[in-house]
Lab assay of single mutants.
Amino acid sequence: DETGKFLVLALYDYQEKSPREVTAKKGDILTLLNSTNKDWWKVEVNGRQGFVPAAYVKFL
């Protein structure tokens, strides 16, 4: 159920650099879980949760 969740689009490829991050490919649609940090947003992609740089994604 996606009610109340926001989707964001990956603008660039991002390769995770730590276990707390997730890899995303340009064009991926990610479920935004938390955007309270202006630099790192928590997302879910391909069943995995983790952080990506906020500058790499935008709201749909």
Rank of each mutant, 00 (worst) to 15 (best):
V22K: 02
L33I: 14
Q15Y: 15
V8L: 15
Y56I: 15
L11S: 02
P53C: 14
K38L: 08
E16F: 05
E21V: 04
P19S: 12
I29D: 00
A24I: 15
V45Q: 04
T36W: 09
S18N: 11
R48M: 07
K17V: 08
W41R: 00
W40N: 00
L30W: 03
N46E: 07
F51H: 02
Q49F: 07
A24D: 02
R48F: 07
D28F: 07
E44R: 04
N34V: 10
Y14Q: 01
N34R: 05
D28T: 06
G47V: 03
L60Q: 06
F51S: 00
E2V: 14
G27L: 04
K17C: 12
A55F: 10
V52G: 02
N34M: 07
R48S: 05
K58V: 14
A54Y: 04
G47H: 03
V45M: 06
S35A: 14
E44D: 07
Y14L: 02
Q49K: 09
K58Y: 09
A24F: 15
L9S: 02
D28S: 06
G47P: 01
N46F: 07
A55Q: 11
V8S: 00
K26L: 08
E44C: 11
T31W: 11
G4V: 14
W40R: 00
T3L: 12
T23W: 04
L7W: 12
A24S: 04
W41F: 09
Y12H: 09
N37F: 07
E44W: 05
W40G: 00
V8C: 10
R20K: 11
E2D: 12
Y12T: 06
K5L: 12
Q15V: 15
Y56F: 13
K26G: 04
R48G: 04
Y56W: 08
S35Y: 10
K38G: 10
D39L: 13
N37M: 07
D13R: 02
V45T: 08
E21G: 13
S35P: 07
V52N: 02
G50C: 07
A54M: 05
W41Y: 10
R20D: 12
K26F: 06
A54K: 05
L33R: 00
Q15P: 07
N46T: 03
P19A: 10
G47D: 04
P53Y: 09
F51D: 01
F59A: 11
E21W: 08
V57G: 00
V57L: 15
Y56C: 15
D13W: 09
V22Q: 04
Y12N: 06
D1C: 15
A10Y: 07
W41Q: 01
P53E: 06
L32R: 01
V45P: 00
T23E: 03
N46D: 12
T31L: 15
L60A: 05
Y56T: 11
L7T: 08
V22D: 03
V52T: 01
E16S: 15
L9W: 04
Q49Y: 06
L33C: 12
N37V: 05
P19N: 10
Y12A: 10
G50W: 06
K17D: 03
K26A: 13
V8E: 00
Y12V: 09
A10W: 08
K38V: 09
V45D: 00
I29S: 02
K26D: 04
L33V: 09
V43L: 03
W40M: 04
F59M: 14
A55I: 11
S18R: 07
Y14G: 02
T36F: 11
K5G: 11
N34Y: 07
N34K: 05
L32H: 02
E16M: 12
E44P: 00
A54P: 04
S18Y: 06
E21S: 07
V57T: 01
L32F: 04
V43S: 00
V45F: 11
L33M: 05
W41K: 00
N37P: 03
A10I: 15
T36I: 09
L7K: 10
N46Q: 08
D13P: 06
V45N: 08
E2I: 14
Q49T: 14
R20L: 14
T3V: 12
N37I: 06
V22E: 02
P19F: 10
L11V: 09
K5N: 10
K58F: 09
N37Q: 08
L60F: 09
G27F: 06
T23R: 05
G47M: 04
Y14D: 02
D13I: 10
S35G: 10
G50A: 03
Q49W: 07
A54I: 08
K42V: 14
K42F: 15
L60V: 11
T31C: 12
D13K: 03
K25Y: 09
K25E: 05
V22L: 10
W41C: 06
V57Y: 03
S35C: 15
K5I: 13
V8R: 00
W40Y: 05
L11A: 03
P19H: 09
A10C: 15
V8W: 05
R48E: 05
T36C: 15
V57E: 02
V45K: 06
D39K: 12
T36D: 15
P53Q: 05
Y12E: 09
L32I: 09
R20H: 13
V52R: 01
V52Y: 11
P19Q: 09
V22H: 03
Y14F: 07
V43C: 10
F6N: 10
F6M: 13
W40I: 01
T3C: 15
E21Y: 07
T36Y: 10
L11F: 06
T3N: 13
K25N: 08
K25H: 11
L7F: 14
R48T: 06
S18V: 04
S18C: 12
G27W: 05
L9A: 03
L9D: 01
E21I: 06
T23P: 04
V57R: 00
V22F: 10
K42G: 03
P53T: 08
Y56K: 06
Q15L: 13
E21P: 04
V57M: 11
K25D: 03
N34H: 06
P53S: 06
L11H: 01
D28C: 11
S18G: 13
N46A: 09
L32W: 04
G47N: 05
D1W: 14
L9E: 12
F51T: 02
V57W: 04
V45Y: 06
Y14C: 12
T36K: 11
T3Q: 12
G50D: 01
T31F: 11
D39S: 09
W40Q: 00
L11R: 03
K38F: 06
L32G: 01
N34G: 06
P19Y: 10
N46C: 09
F51K: 00
I29C: 08
V22Y: 01
V43G: 01
F59Q: 09
F59N: 07
G4Q: 13
K25C: 13
F59P: 11
V52F: 15
G47F: 05
L7H: 09
K58R: 11
E21D: 05
L60S: 04
K58G: 12
G47S: 05
F51N: 02
K58D: 10
T31V: 15
K26T: 07
N34S: 12
D39R: 11
L32C: 07
N34A: 08
T23M: 03
Y14S: 02
L60D: 02
N46Y: 05
G47W: 05
K17G: 07
R20C: 15
V45G: 03
V57C: 09
K58T: 13
G50P: 00
G47K: 02
A10G: 02
G4F: 12
D28M: 10
T3S: 13
F59V: 14
D13C: 12
T36E: 13
G50H: 04
P19T: 09
K26H: 05
V22A: 02
G50Y: 06
Q15T: 14
N37S: 09
G50N: 01
E21N: 04
K58Q: 13
L32M: 04
W40K: 00
V57A: 00
K58I: 14
V57K: 00
E21T: 08
A10E: 01
T31R: 12
N34E: 14
L60E: 04
K26C: 09
R48A: 06
A10N: 02
S18T: 11
F6K: 12
E21L: 06
E16W: 06
G4L: 12
L60N: 06
L9G: 01
Y12I: 09
A55K: 14
F51L: 07
T31K: 13
R20N: 13
N46W: 06
N46H: 09
F6L: 13
L11K: 04
N34D: 15
G27E: 04
L7V: 08
E2G: 14
D28Y: 08
V57H: 00
S18W: 07
V8N: 01
V43E: 00
L11G: 02
R48V: 09
D28N: 06
T3W: 12
W41D: 00
